[in-house]
Design a protein around this nucleic acid. Structure first.
Length: 311
DNA sequence: CGATTTTGACCAGCGC
DNA sequence: GCGCTGGTCAAAATCG
């Protein structure tokens, strides 16, 4: 896995083997799409256009300008943990009653994500629900957490954004609780793990800073929110809600309506608002996208290509 | 006081 | 089978 980069001579999107990212769970392929691919994004709920400038609904707000040419797709091949992108379908994670999942305090929360998404997995593994997180070694007290050994961890679709920002945790309209932090191989910067504070929401997000370009923050969302955002400073309260749930829309599809806001907690430190959405899709969905050369830096390496970093 | 963050440990998955 | 790494848990600490 460390060899990571492998340009894709073929001119097609890289394959798992080409882009091994380093982590079992993150074997994701990233592609750069041209404006032509924007349509694909739209299918996933992304209303993007080349050179799009924000401010319109469905856009990323003034925070960023999306340049379709630099758009990066991150089809989650799931080599490992999950069969394939799951549509996240119906309600992704929020299906069940609040009680279940993570409880706030320390909650054994584990149950999250994976567990709740039976419908989703359409693909490969019909796997039985559950298998929740691999949660650590905690007592198998909670049934929902019970993970059968043979079952693989199922993850919801993931969408990553690269943002030039000095702050790690960008405000996106939702409230998150940090539940872990890990040092990342090949990167001096640790990766932080956040979980939506909404009791019913199982959306998670990982935040990592580029080791090559510290100004770039890679934020990866996993799952879909099934609730409203907490509200935006800009008065933009998202009206949408779980209505999107049935589509394979990226979790961000909700908060990006109001536009990804500048961190509330942190002032407008975002220097260059450049955010590149990385969407995970089924490997087969995308084709023939401009090949990109990933760099081996963990998450970042998967998402950011050298050229971009140097920009 | 409640919520969030920090931090060390544990477990699962994968490659060798 | 072993080791490595990512991901998650949960107790303790910190913050508002």
């Amino acid at each position: 896995m460390d060899d990571a980069h492998n340009p894709d001579p073929g001119g097609h999107f890289a394959t798992d083997s080409n882009w091994n990212l380093g982590s079992d769970s993150d074997n994701v392929n990233y592609f750069f799409a041209s404006d032509r691919e924007s349509s694909i994004l739209r299918e996933f709920g992304w209303n993007l256009h080349p050179g799009h400038t924000s401010s319109e609904p469905g856009s990323f707000g003034d925070l960023d300008r999306i340049d379709a040419e630099n758009l990066v797709f991150a089809p989650e091949s799931s080599s490992g943990l999950q069969g394939s992108v799951s549509g996240g379908g119906g309600g992704g994670g929020c299906d069940d009653q609040a009680g279940m999942g993570r409880s706030e305090s320390g909650g054994a929360g584990g149950a999250d994500v994976s567990t709740s998404n039976p419908s989703v997995s359409s693909s490969s593994s019909e796997d039985p629900p559950d298998k929740s997180t691999g949660s650590g070694g905690k007592p198998p007290e909670i049934p929902s957490k019970v993970r059968k050994k043979g079952q693989k961890r199922i993850r919801q679709p993931r969408f990553a954004f690269m943002t030039k920002s000095e702050v790690d945790h960008l405000e996106d309209g939702y409230r998150w609780r940090k539940y872990g932090q890990k040092a990342v191989k090949n990167s001096p910067f640790p990766r932080s793990y956040y979980r939506c504070t909404n009791g019913k929401c199982t959306v998670k997000k990982r935040v990592e800073r580029s080791s090559e370009d510290p100004t770039i923050v890679i934020t990866t969302y996993e799952g879909q929110h099934c609730h409203h955002t907490v509200g935006f400073p800009r008065g933009g309260i998202i009206s949408h809600e779980a209505t999107l749930v049935n589509h394979l829309t990226p979790p961000v599809s909700q908060f990006y309506y109001p536009g990804i806001q500048l961190p509330r907690e942190s002032p407008p430190t975002i220097t260059r608002s450049q955010q590149i959405p990385v969407q995970t899709v089924e490997s087969g969905t995308l084709r023939e996208l401009t090949p990109q050369i990933p760099i081996d830096e963990g998450l970042l390496g998967d998402i950011v290509r050298p050229g971009m970093l140097n920009r």
